[in-house]
């Protein structure tokens, strides 16, 4: 678990806003090199790593996790050097006020998100949730200097900072979905000395937060026989309903949904039971809102499964996971990959 913690901490500190993920590819490739030299990047920035099988015509299994993170985008620099922005990629606006951000311009520019303070607001205005238009980023430069460092369209992410809570819980930015990336690397570690019956392809995809775009393209390129998507899902917090959330510390959330292959969900459940890997079931009635939605209908269609890591405070700068849950995912993925034999239809 120490290895997983170390990987997650390093990944969480890296910046990869949707559409501008290049700054994080180096560190991810560094981790992958331990397991294979066959690492490519495609046109969109998806990282595709292949761990070959000794068998010829082996079945292709793809494990996918998106490595982009939620972000904002610069729309204007005002006369006093304050930066206005838009939020197209899922950031929880409520969590922005007074927080530290990085504007990825010509260089990384530090800023604080600011808005009208309470004494300038009426009681009524104080009750209403503020909008993106009410916010601006204070970077401490005047308009002229700001324009030299930043351009309209530059990405903005939360500033990286991880915190350790009790019970091996990690809190940081972009744990959605560096936790998924970590889990897959953990799986590779468990498989490293095993001769695989299948060709294992790892897709670390881009632009999931912008509409699962990387996965669509990646799945087309890889064209696997089976795909498992690893992402995060909501863990219970006191103000949420138990009906809508999983539980942190209770292990892998195995997805069941109309778009996921039933046999894969069942196989994952069976493997978890046999190997005493803690798990819970996550039933969704829709397309899951993950890369699985795009992968399933790539090319002629790809049988897809989904497993998720329970995570609290999604899309805030304080996303929180328990390391033991990530470990469970790594173990289950490894069992799944090991278990696929020649001739099996899944």
């Amino acid at each position: 678990m120490e290895l997983l913690k170390d990987i997650l901490l390093q990944l969480s500190m890296a910046y990869a806003p949707s559409g501008r993920e290049h700054t994080a590819t180096e560190i991810i490739e560094k981790f992958l090199l331990k397991y294979t030299k066959d690492i490519k990047k495609d046109a969109l920035g998806n990282i595709i790593a292949v761990i070959p099988s000794k068998k010829t015509n082996a079945k292709k299994i793809m494990l996918d996790a998106h490595y982009d993170e939620i972000s904002l985008m610069v729309t204007n620099i005002d006369d006093d050097g304050f930066v206005k922005f838009t939020s197209p990629f899922g950031v929880d606006i409520r969590s922005l006020l007074a927080k530290e951000v990085i504007i990825h311009g010509v260089q990384e520019v530090f800023g604080i998100v600011s808005s009208k303070p309470p004494h300038l607001l009426s009681d009524e205005e104080m009750q209403k949730a503020y909008k993106v238009e009410d916010l601006a980023i204070d970077i401490g430069f005047n308009n002229e200097k700001a324009n030299k460092l930043i351009n309209i369209g530059d990405s903005i992410t939360f500033k990286a900072r991880t915190t350790n809570l009790k019970n091996d819980i990690i809190c940081g930015k972009s744990v959605d979905n560096r936790a998924g990336v970590t889990a897959i690397i953990g799986c590779l570690e468990l498989l490293k000395n095993i001769n695989l019956e299948v060709e294992l392809i790892v897709l670390f995809s881009v632009q999931e937060e912008a509409g699962t775009k990387g996965a669509k393209v990646g799945a087309y390129t890889v064209n696997p026989d089976t795909a498992i998507v690893v992402d995060v899902s909501h863990a219970f917090t006191p103000d949420a309903s138990k009906d809508e959330t999983g539980e942190m510390g209770k292990g892998v959330m195995i997805g069941i949904s109309p778009i996921l292959k039933r046999e894969i969900s069942a196989e994952l459940t069976q493997l978890a039971k046999e190997n005493e890997i803690p798990f819970q079931t996550e039933v969704m009635s829709d397309n899951t809102g993950t890369n699985a939605a795009s992968i399933q209908i790539a090319r002629s269609g790809i049988p897809t499964g989904l497993i998720s890591i329970p995570l609290k405070y999604m899309h805030s700068p304080c996303e929180t996971v328990m390391l033991s849950d990530i470990e469970c995912v790594s173990r289950l993925l490894a069992e799944f990959v090991k278990g696929i034999r020649e001739g099996e239809t899944i």
Partner: peptide, 18 residues
């Protein structure tokens, strides 16, 4: 950390109030 229900789980009214 000071937590709050994830934004995806908010109702319409919850989205507009502090």
């Amino acid at each position: 950390i000071i937590g709050i229900k994830a934004v995806h789980l908010l109702s319409k009214e919850e989205k507009t109030t502090v």
